[in-house]
Design a binder for these strands. Structure first.
Length: 423
RNA sequence: GGCAGGUUGCCCGAGCGGCCAAUGGGAGCGGACUGUAAAUCCGUCGGCUUUGCCUUCGAAGGUUCGAAUCCUUCACCUGCCA
């Protein structure tokens, strides 16, 4: 694949270069030939999430520009855990980590090409750490890490108050060793990761320099935050997962559709492959008529398509149109409504059991965690059956309320829809 | 190993024998305003068969008519001394 010389400018324009080791040297390297680069994913959960998607897409951008990806899934680093501010991690069992390694690999694979002269390669750092002895590790790797420097790292410094185990303190050595191993075995000379990984990235660069006297590169992508500075990628359920079983494609789509105005441009640049001109046109339109939310719609459509495919995205768009179209549910056919509700999430009830009251409906549909919470929602005026507000906690829908004889549309607040299918 | 302080609801953090399901802030949730945005304002925020009942304040015992609050033991964390 021919090199695309515009890559560094494109990365910079998209805001993906939050930190770089030596930008000029990196530009030179990227212009000189197909650079072998790597990005790592630690299996600390059964699925990757929004933050990881930035790395996956960035990896794809580099590959599209002619460079050669090495995707590392951290079977070893995942056994240890990167220190984080929220405190010491609980260690996961080897079986769990091994299982997650498989899942994470499978999630990454569709995004990259494993064919051609710059085909991607999957690697697992367990391969070069599994057989390593402690003595070799301390002599060959540990010797290159001054503890005083390690102590100065932000995350470590913050953790010194609350406490940090030797295990997590040592994490940076493992990740740095990955870079050295990939440099030696595969000629990898570029690593990137999230900006929260910057310390680990430079740790690797430093190790390669000290151990082998070579100069390699690293850059960090920005941390995606809301305008108030808090972390992005949170939805009611917690993190926004790429796995459709953990975060439904419908919820995923809705997340993007609801992105705050100020962030649309930034997110379009980072999370879509739309060309610059198109993004700038969307931004201009958005600035002029923000209420149309053209940016959010494009963002939701493109990112959902990337992760869940065009077909699923089309179904979600139809579902959203039906549910948010407002007004009378009776105007929709049972088929249309049923399809929409299945996207949004629905539960089945047996007709023979009779229709439960609103409170139980809200709970069984998952819109409320307890009857107490359901009661509160109703009392606060946030509960709707078929888009009609219900204010009586004891209200029981009748079979006349069933749209098309089968569906009940439950809504909590402005935008949480669930279907109840009575069969 | 010794001394001192701490462990409270999703998070931070008050309470220091009854008026405590527990002040306050944040997050969350609902309402109003909008554009399925942001900001703002209001309400809400353990569970239930909800004018009452049940389970919570690190764990287990104890004192008391009555404890998150007092005592004992245990676990963990922080600081000072060895």
């Amino acid at each position: 694949m021919p090199l695309d010389p515009s890559l560094p400018d494109d990365l910079a324009w998209r805001g993906l270069l939050a930190h770089t080791t030596d930008l000029d040297a990196l530009r030179e390297a990227l212009a000189a030939g197909s650079v072998r680069y790597y990005v790592g994913f630690d299996p600390t959960a059964p699925s990757l999430h929004l933050g990881n998607l930035v790395q996956i897409l960035t990896a794809r951008r580099l590959q599209d520009a002619g460079h050669t990806p090495y995707l590392l899934v951290g079977g070893a680093t995942g056994m240890i855990g990167d220190p984080r501010d929220s405190g010491e991690r609980t260690l996961n069992s080897a079986d769990t980590v091994a299982d997650w390694v498989q899942r994470v690999r499978a999630q990454i694979e569709p995004f990259l090409s494993f064919e051609g002269d710059n085909a991607a390669t999957m690697v697992n750092n367990l391969d070069w750490t599994g057989g390593l002895s402690v003595i070799d590790f301390l002599r060959d790797i540990g010797k290159h890490f001054p503890v005083n420097r390690m102590l100065a790292r932000d995350t470590v410094r913050r953790r010194l108050e609350s406490g940090i185990s030797y295990t997590e303190f040592s994490y940076v050595l493992l990740q740095s060793m990955d870079y050295l191993a990939l440099f030696r075995d595969h000629g990898v000379t570029l690593q990137f990761g999230g900006s929260d990984q910057w310390g680990n990235l430079t740790g690797g660069v430093e190790l390669v320099r000290r151990a082998d006297g070579a100069s390699v590169h690293a850059f960090a992508t920005p941390l995606i935050t809301k305008t108030d500075g808090t972390k992005y990628g949170k939805t009611e359920g917690g993190a926004l997962w790429l796995d459709p079983d953990l975060t439904s494609p419908y919820a995923f789509f809705q997340f993007w559709l609801n992105v705050e105005d100020e962030k649309v441009g930034e997110l379009l640049r980072i999370f879509t492959f739309l060309p610059r001109a198109e993004i700038e046109a969307l931004e201009a339109q958005h600035a002029e008529k923000p209420f149309l939310r053209a940016g959010q719609k494009a963002l939701a459509e493109h990112v959902t398509t990337l992760v869940h495919g065009a077909e699923e995205t089309a179904r979600i768009q139809a579902a959203s149109a039906a549910l948010f179209g407002g007004g009378d549910m009776g105007g929709l056919s049972a088929d249309t409504l049923g399809a929409a509700l299945r996207e949004a999430g629905s539960v089945r009830l047996d007709r023979a059991d009779g229709l439960p009251g609103v409170l139980d409906l809200l709970v069984s549909a998952g819109l409320a965690k307890s009857r107490g919470e359901a009661r509160r929602t109703v009392t606060e005026g946030g509960a709707y059956v078929n888009n009609v507000r219900v204010t009586d906690p004891d209200h029981v829908p009748s079979s006349d309320d069933l749209v098309g004889g089968t569906w009940l549309v439950l809504r909590k607040g402005k935008k949480s829809f669930k279907g109840v299918e009575v069969v």
